[in-house]
Design a protein around this nucleic acid. Sequence first.
DNA 1: GGTAATTCGGATATTATCATCCGAATACCG
DNA 2: CGGTATTCGGATGATAATATCCGAATTACC
Lengths: 148, 148
Amino acid sequence: MLSQTGIYALQAVLHLARQGGGASVSAASISDALDLPATYLAKVLHRLGREGVLHSTRGARGGFRLAADPAAITVATVVAPFQELRPSRTCLLGGPCDLENPCSAHERRVAWTAAALRILECTTIADLLEGNPLPAAVSAHAQSEDRP
Amino acid sequence: MLSQTGIYALQAVLHLARQGGGASVSAASISDALDLPATYLAKVLHRLGREGVLHSTRGARGGFRLAADPAAITVATVVAPFQELRPSRTCLLGGPCDLENPCSAHERRVAWTAAALRILECTTIADLLEGNPLPAAVSAHAQSEDRP
DNA sequence: GGTAATTCGGATATTATCATCCGAATACCG
DNA sequence: CGGTATTCGGATGATAATATCCGAATTACC
């Protein structure tokens, strides 16, 4: 559902949020705390910086910090640089398919990506930190589906 | 959302359903009709045979045909051999997480996979052939989210 | 100014997925 | 019985995602 890279990004951002917004935190320190591949995470953080999610400062005592309040950063924003979130043009059945020329699975594809996107866009970093539940309107269709 | 291999499987099964359940159809004939990688599709079909979705007969005049009525085959069944459908133990945030020890994104992950799974399990091959809409209970949360 | 800490950015390795190739084994058909 | 069409199954080759390496550029601190 989320690419490994996206998960790393989310974990790192969550870690930064836990540290508060004060000082910059180095990539090494983050990968150390979360036990993630250090050099790869560095690249992910770098990308989040260019994307405007993080603020990066170079040189000694440099590092990364959140570019906004945790309540203003959605999971979708964090993950977007690393995977396609919007429904792509290729449908469940292969070939292209759009509103004018929908394939027989078009409606399903739209429902699927809409459900996913809704969750990612309605959840902020602060929500995850504080354990806020999903809004009822979003979770309405997801009860009692837990046991694997 | 679906792996390429899963899409191939779905397309092939749909093609078989369109041909009716009478004679066996060869892998070459299917890949020819759908313009899919022939040798790879052969493997996919083979797998669907072992999995019980298709019935395969060897030798001249051999080939594949549906093992059940299109209305009795769900998309989930067709796609399952080629990708993890049930929520995995690794959560949105990395580490393991279950009912006893949920991470802060647990509920979101469950909602997400439940929405996807519901669509895949409620849609049969016959539904796609006939263009049946999603049941209202499933699609309730997916309106007006179409334009990419 | 020198040194240590750190991001930046490209080149390269590793791994999973997708795809091809080839030699069987099997069954129909004359 | 021999020939041909086909699935079966393993070995092998591309391509993309994941991960590592190293040299540079930048900045804080002494």
